[in-house]
């Protein structure tokens, strides 16, 4: 499984561009994984308050929940550390069905 953190898309460049366009932007980053998580630490997702999404932090399992948390981070201005895993009720609902666990850091771009 891949362990490096290079991404084909430059999510940071996209986040910067959205910000320059006047959007409210948050960046989510996978910071830790256990088991068969689909994306390695360092994977990023950029989100806008208007609902634009680019990049990924999982195979699609938790992007929705992360986007919700990103919107909260944008309105509060505060970062958040999210835990997803099979032991977590909420994560089970949003379906990290690969059976892995991961932590995702969500921060507003200020």
């Amino acid at each position: 499984m891949s362990t490096d953190t290079t991404q084909s898309e430059d999510i940071l460049a996209i986040a910067a561009r959205w910000k320059a366009e006047g959007e409210q932007v948050a960046i989510a980053t996978v910071v830790e994984t256990w088991g068969s998580s689909p994306r390695p630490a360092g994977s990023r997702l950029a989100v806008t308050a208007s609902g634009r999404l680019m990049g990924s932090v999982s195979g699609g399992c938790i992007e929705g929940a992360v986007a919700d948390a990103a919107k909260q981070a944008m309105s509060s201005g505060e970062p958040a550390l999210l835990d997803f895993g099979i032991s977590d009720e909420r994560a089970w609902e949003v379906g990290l069905s690969c059976g892995g666990k991961m932590k995702v850091f969500v921060e507003p771009l200020t």
Binding site: T3, T5, P40
Partner: peptide, 23 residues
């Protein structure tokens, strides 16, 4: 290592995210 890491310093967790130039 081209690999992100987590370290603890003074009881605080830090995420260490490397960005190497492209191959």
């Amino acid at each position: 290592a081209e690999k992100a890491a987590n370290v603890m310093l003074d009881g605080e967790a830090w995420f260490v995210h490397p960005h190497n130039p492209p191959l």
